[in-house]
């Protein structure tokens, strides 16, 4: 059951990720990215990361994608020129590089299968909000506060950057 769900979500994520980079219309790319992020939330659920699956949908598929769509519609870039033609010499190099990367990972993973071993037995409540909160506010309290500072800096920076007249 879990295995077939994994394959469904993984196939959805890969196909829509390909749609993101192959589609010439930026709006379609953005919608495909939303589908990818939703499938990833499903995979997070399979891995018992319940809290992060919900955060993935709210923050990524919600907030970040709205920002993307907003900027796409604000700038109205239109369709990109055709880039998937055999005349484009870049294509071969990129395909080669990506294939080499995947081949490298496959070699690495298949070589280390014997060392990975069985998964630790599940307690069923690994990524619940309770457990995440407990760890976040005890062991990782300082990084949490620094992250809030980072968000503040990003907020101020984004407002400053889009101002028309800087003095």
């Amino acid at each position: 059951m879990t295995e077939s769900l994994f394959f469904i979500f993984a196939a959805m994520a890969i196909v829509s990720a390909l749609m993101v980079i192959l589609n010439r219309n930026p709006i379609y790319s953005a919608v495909s990215l939303v589908i990818t992020l939703f499938s990833l939330a499903g995979i997070f659920l399979l891995l018992e990361a319940y809290f992060l699956a919900v955060v993935q949908i709210i923050v990524y598929a919600g907030a970040i994608m709205v920002l993307f769509l907003f900027v796409i519609m604000l700038l109205n870039p239109g369709k990109e020129a055709k880039f998937l033609s055999p005349k484009n010499p870049r294509i071969f190099i990129i395909t080669l590089l990506s294939m080499a990367f995947i081949g490298m990972i496959i070699t690495l993973v298949s070589g280390s299968v014997n060392y990975i071993g069985e998964a630790a037995s599940s307690t069923g409540d690994l990524g619940t909000t309770r457990n995440i909160g407990l760890t976040l506010f005890t062991k990782y309290l300082l990084p949490f506060e620094i992250a809030s500072l980072l968000l503040l800096v990003a907020l101020v920076g984004a407002v400053l950057m889009t101002k028309r007249h800087l003095r």
Partner: peptide, 17 residues
């Protein structure tokens, strides 16, 4: 998924993509 992302960065000329 990572390889698709790398290919996208190298392939596309649209900054948003």
């Amino acid at each position: 998924l990572f390889a698709i992302g790398v290919a996208g960065v190298l392939l596309r000329r649209n900054v948003i993509i």
